[in-house]
Design a protein around this nucleic acid. Structure first.
Lengths: 146, 146
DNA sequence: TGGCATTAGTAACTATACTTATTAATTTTG
DNA sequence: CAAAATTAATAAGTATAGTTACTAATGCCA
């Protein structure tokens, strides 16, 4: 069992736990939402009218996959797509009134569950972990504002 | 853009990078293999004759998903399944001779690529990160929660 | 201005990843 | 020993996550 001690394996398990905590706690709060759907919604809320490729780039996501994610948000009535007047290839994405109304309470739930993802660590260790994780990601963060 | 600074989001991106490094470097070395397939192969190599559920548990994997992973390993001729003599529900899994021959060189490649996953961190920081990640996982290491 | 590269989005395909339900075999227990 | 509970694996359904290939629209530029 060499794999257990490898970075890739540990990261896969962190991701597994993280996704599970997200799904469980958002569901308990009455939302049906995945972590990626929330990230997309968050990006759309901060950048209304951006096209799908821009949203994908903001959350480091693939152009070919974001379509499906936005499909599901659209199906829930949280976002709306509209063909851009200036570029008929592009779809401008915005939160619907329901999306706007949902975003605030949802954000509160999502912020609250973050501490549970690393429940095995103390507060200080969580800070250390997050700052190391953020640093590990910075080489590819060139296009992202804070 | 609140999501960027959250644990869940950072972990998702780490996983993304990790999977990408794994796929790229194993492919460059001539192997067609995903991280989970390697983890399964590693567990099978260390526990020949274990059934699928045991392998799943060893790598913190779902029983319903491991079947597909082992299917793909079987299709590549790396592992073989055999109905257990003592329990006809269970399939005992073992590496084939080709699997045995492949395992060593593959392990070397996988061990070598681990450092590239956290390429943004110094050696000391990598150690810190890995030990924090391992600690974050320990509460559930005894066995899997629901 | 006509052709060509680029870009936005989708489609199809592979592979996770998890849930619930089902089937089949085994074990427990009444 | 038969009924009930448990367990191993699969099946079906949903949602990521990425690749390559394709269509359609745009923009460059010679």
């Amino acid at each position: 069992m060499h794999a257990q001690h490898m970075a890739g394996h540990l990261i896969r398990r962190l991701h597994q736990v993280s996704s599970h905590v997200f799904a469980t706690q958002t569901q308990a709060a009455g939302f049906k939402m995945t972590a990626v759907q929330f990230a997309a919604m968050d990006a759309i809320q901060s950048n209304p009218g951006a096209d799908q490729a821009q949203i994908a780039s903001l959350i480091s996501y693939d152009r070919a996959t974001i379509g499906g994610v936005i499909d599901r948000l659209e199906k829930k009535g949280l976002v709306a797509r509209e063909v851009s007047a200036s570029d008929r290839r592009a779809r401008e994405v915005r939160l619907t009134p329901l999306g706007e109304k949902t975003y605030g309470p949802l954000l509160a739930v999502v912020q609250a569950l973050q501490t549970d993802i690393l429940s095995g660590l103390s507060e200080v260790e969580k800070e250390q972990f997050l700052s190391l994780a953020a640093k590990a990601m910075t080489p590819c963060d060139s296009n992202e504002p804070s």
